[in-house]
Design a protein around this nucleic acid. Structure first.
Lengths: 150, 150
DNA sequence: GTAACTGCAAAATATTTGCATCCTT
DNA sequence: AAGGATGCAAATATTTTGCAGTTAC
C-alpha cells in the first residue's frame, strides 16, 4: 500500500478528482478539462456542444451534480434560464463555499468570467439582516471585447 | 358606460398597467397584486400556487414576460433553476433598469427580498473590464427569521 | 370594431429516474 | 470481485408556439 500511495499523491496534485475521492473516468476527466481550458463559466449546453457526442446528456447532468456536491465547481447565478458553472478554488469544500470573487458577464461576447482580484463590497444591510455569503454579478464589457475592435 | 369609466380612472393612479399602456385584465391585475402583497420575489411556480387554477400556466408565462418587457418587474439571478421576479421601481423603463439595491436570499425561510437602502460597492475590476450593471446577491438570515425563535 | 389577451392543445426542451452493463479501484 | 459510473429508454417537468374565442378599449 505504501508504494501505491506515493504514486497517487504524485498524480493527485493535478487531479481534483482523486483529491475528492471520485473515480477517474473519461467523462469526468474530459469535463474537468473543458472547465480548465475555458477559464470561464460553462452551462450544461456549452458542455454538450463542446463535448460533442462523446457522452450522454445524462452523464453531463450527473457529472455536474457530482462536481457541485464535492465542491469542484460552483453554480453562478444568472437571470436567464441557463445556469452556469465554474471551477472552485482550493478553499472550497462540499459544504463551505468561499467565493469572494466577482462574476463578470460580458454583454458583448456573452462569456462569464470569475474575477478573483476584485474586492468585495462593504454592505450596509438593514438592521436585523445577517449576511453569510455574497455573490456579486457584474454585467459589462470584458477586456478582450474592449480591446478588440468595436 | 360613463360611470364605469370614472371608477377605472380612479384606480389607474395605483395601476402600473395603464401607465405602461397595457390592457387591464384579470390575470394581470391579479399577478400584480400578488407581487405587491408579497413584497418579495416570486417564481413562476410561486405564482402558479398562489393563483391556484385561476388562470392558465401559459398566461403566467406570457404575463411575466410582458411585465419584464415593460419594466414592471425584473428578474433576479439565482443559482438554482428557479428564476425569481420582483417589482421594479419607478425609475425603471423597458430598456433601462436601474437596480442599485441588493437581493437578499434568506437561507432559513427561503424568501428573497430587495433591500433598497443598501449601498452599492465600489468595485475594483481588473484593467480593461468595464462595468455597466451590478447585481449583488446576499445569502443570509433575514430580519424576521432572525428575530423569531431559532 | 379592432387590436390585444386568454385558454386550450400540442410541440419542443429540459431534467430526472430506473435498470442493465461496463469500468475503476 | 464490488461498488460506482455510464448509456439507453422512458417518465416528468418546463417552456414555447399556434390558433380560435373572448375581452378591453
Amino acid at each position: 500500500m505504501a508504494g501505491k500511495k506515493q504514486i497517487e499523491s504524485a498524480v493527485s496534485a493535478q487531479d481534483p478528482l482523486k483529491q475528492k475521492g471520485l473515480s477517474v473516468t473519461d467523462s469526468r476527466r474530459k469535463i474537468l478539462q473543458l472547465f480548465m481550458q475555458q477559464k470561464g463559466a460553462l452551462s450544461h449546453g456549452d458542455i454538450e456542444k463542446k463535448a460533442g457526442a462523446t457522452f450522454d446528456r445524462v452523464t453531463i447532468y450527473r457529472t455536474l451534480q457530482t462536481f457541485l456536491d464535492k465542491g469542484i465547481i460552483h453554480a453562478i447565478p444568472s437571470a436567464n434560464n441557463a445556469i452556469l458553472y465554474a471551477l472552485c478554488h482550493e478553499q472550497c469544500g462540499p459544504d463551505h463555499h468561499d467565493h469572494q470573487h466577482i462574476h463578470f458577464i460580458c454583454s458583448r461576447c456573452k462569456h462569464t468570467f470569475c474575477l478573483d482580484h476584485s474586492v468585495t463590497p462593504d454592505l450596509h444591510l438593514p438592521k436585523g439582516y445577517q449576511a453569510q455569503d455574497i455573490d456579486v454579478l457584474v454585467k459589462g464589457v470584458c477586456k478582450r471585447c474592449n480591446t478588440t475592435s468595436k
